[in-house]
Design a protein around this nucleic acid. Structure first.
Length: 552
RNA sequence: GCCCCUAUAGCUCAGGGGAUAGAGCGUUGCCCUCCGAAGGCAAACGCGCAGGUUCGAGUCCUGCUAGGGGCACCA
């Protein structure tokens, strides 16, 4: 008995009551809201239908609820229906109807929790896209964890997702990067506007070691070009490796520079010109983005002839669309939120629908603190904490989980010292331990002769079992909402609750009999519930890219 | 000045209009003679301020305060 079943049953009842003349002439709803009461004493499910609908049907909430409850009680699978407060209907399923879920989950396996909300959608999800001028710092690491989890959640709803990384290997910052490498290689200080981190020396050394050419013998401009070429390539490999080690593998690494080499940029601008959204002024080429809600028009070709950064984005968006993506989702840091209106404007300028064909998710930045003191992160100054640092300190699972369990809207404080010292603080262990426990229980069951040859769901009637079953039943809805709201952290919060319910059940209900006692139907039935719980935790952890260990 | 995000327990954070606001960590007290105590039970501690909408507001709206981020022919 799912929420959808209950909703349908209630709508049918309302229709019947109306036909019988017990209710006035209201408009029949397509469905009613069925939700999980916060308090278990209020039953398995509750609906506010009476509060919402009574007025339209010419009665009051209480009377409406009485009429519906009387009919609902005779629906099979429903144990009791109570009316509470101003007119809530609290519905309790009978143990057998609730318990059936355990078997259904085991039989669905990895499919439990998936859905078809986004079936047929081709989604391009761009995230991280950190500049190739240094290693990935905590901000990018957060997007890696969150973005990859979002991709998994979207896929769980049937979407075809391409994970994409926009590699900014073009423009002035890369020149600065190359100049910095050259300066370091020659033993000079970093240029005024250059990068000063210690890793610059390291990269410069590796560039020199990695090539037979005597780069330092070249004149500055040629040497700088060599450092640009090799340095970017080195960083590209490095970044890709770090991401891979973090469990994040992109389908496409899109090189910004390729847009310039292929002529895609002028082509895209030409397209906009044909559409009438381009004008020339002050020696520059402009996009009339104010026509689409931006607060000012934007230069796309500067008066010195160079392309502005947005020129690449224009061509890049067009490229994504031409590759058949219905939805292009961008995950950007809060430091880029001012960029959103012009991005949406360029989307609209191409005749697309902002918010549909282009969606931009803004995530707040990660604050680094050390012993309670905020630490300013700056690539230029070299005070970065990298993805690799995090993995080294706490491992991939704990790192990913810590970053993926909070909403992107909240800024996050990461105290590396704290995480290093007491990694057990991380809730991932609470969840992973619960999973390991399900495996351990299963192993013990095997050795004591408990198997799944019987299933009597009506025996799953302990309070902790109905709590656990109720919790497990929420998984599909949680995943669906995580996908809809683009909030994978909901999955993490949910499996923490599952873990809690499981631990309580474990303390109350034994899967294996006490020594000297025979194996009974209830033990075999509970083994199904144990398996179902393990499955849900595994499925949830997998959506977060976190491992589900057999033992800790 | 304008824009975005945030403000919930000692700490880090959930809570997308419903009933008694939750979790982890931390504190205090219990529970290992049977599936791993990395666990469970119990206690204490809470929605920044002021209005508004609603039968009902932590949740929606407005204003204020505080913190973070952003407002280029930079990328």
């Amino acid at each position: 008995m799912t929420p959808a079943d209950l909703s349908a049953a209630i709508v049918r009842i309302i229709a019947a009551l109306q036909a019988a003349g017990s209710l006035g002439a209201g408009e029949l709803p397509a469905e009613v809201v069925i939700e999980r009461p916060k308090n278990r004493e209020h039953g398995d499910w509750a609906t506010n239908a009476a509060l919402q609908l009574s007025k339209a049907f010419g009665t009051n909430p209480r009377a409406f609820a009485e009429l519906v409850a009387a009919e609902l009680r005779s629906v099979s699978g429903i144990a009791s229906v109570d009316i509470a407060g101003p007119g809530f209907l609290n519905i309790t399923l009978d143990a057998a109807a609730a318990g059936e879920l355990a078997k259904a989950i085991v039989e669905s396996g990895t499919g439990y929790g998936t859905g078809t909300d986004l079936a047929g959608q081709k989604i391009n999800l761009e995230f991280v896209s950190a500049n190739p001028t240094g290693p990935i710092h905590m901000g990018g690491t957060r997007w890696a964890a969150l973005g990859d989890s979002l991709a998994r959640v979207l896929q769980a709803q049937g979407a075809e997702v391409t994970r994409e990384y926009y590699f900014n290997d073009h423009g002035a910052q890369i020149d600065r990067f190359a100049r910095s490498l050259l300066a370091r290689a020659r033993g000079l200080d970093a240029p005024e506007d250059g990068y000063g981190g210690a890793y610059i020396q390291d990269i410069a050394d590796r560039v020199l070691a990695g090539t037979a050419d005597d780069i330092l013998a070249l004149p500055d401009d040629q040497a700088q070009e060599k450092f640009r070429e090799y340095g970017v390539e080195l960083m590209f490999g490095e970044i890709r490796q770090s991401l891979h080690d973090f469990g994040v593998d992109f389908d496409v690494f899109f090189h910004e520079n390729s847009l310039y080499e292929s002529g895609a940029v002028p082509k895209a601008i030409e397209r906009l010109r044909e559409l009438g959204h381009i004008f020339e002024a002050d020696g520059a080429t402009w996009l009339r983005s104010t026509e689409f809600g931006d607060d000012r028009d934007r230069v796309i070709i500067k008066s010195d002839g160079d392309a502005a950064y947005i020129a690449g984005d224009i061509a890049y968006y067009l490229d994504k669309r031409s590759r058949g993506f219905d939805r292009c989702i961008y995950m950007l840091g809060a430091d880029h939120h001012g960029y959103v209106p012009r991005m949406m404007a360029l989307c609209a300028a191409f005749g697309d629908e902002p918010g549909v064909n282009m969606e931009i998710l803004i995530g707040q930045l990660v604050n680094l603190v050390r012993n309670g003191e905020p630490v300013r992160m700056s690539k230029r100054a070299g005070t970065v904490v990298t993805m690799e640092d995090l993995v080294e300190a706490v491992g991939v699972d704990a790192g990913r989980y810590a970053l993926a369990r909070s909403s992107a809207n909240s800024m996050l404080d990461i105290d590396l010292e704290q995480l290093t010292k007491k990694s057990n603080d991380n809730p991932v262990f609470y969840v992973q331990y619960a999973h390991a426990r399900t495996r351990q229980v299963a192993n013990n069951a095997v050795s004591l002769g408990v198997d799944r040859s019987e299933f009597a769901p009506e025996l799953l009637n302990h309070a902790s079992e109905s709590e656990l079953l109720a919790k497990l039943s929420e998984f599909p809805r949680v995943v669906s909402q995580a996908a809809e709201f683009r909030e994978p952290h909901r999955v993490a919060r949910y499996i923490e609750e599952v873990a809690g319910s499981y631990h309580r059940w474990y303390d109350n209900c034994r899967v294996t009999p006490l020594s000297g006692n025979p194996v009974e139907t209830i033990h075999r039935t509970r083994l199904w519930l144990n398996e179902a719980t393990g499955q849900v935790i595994r499925n949830g952890l997998s959506m977060l890219g976190v491992g589900a260990p057999e033992r800790m």
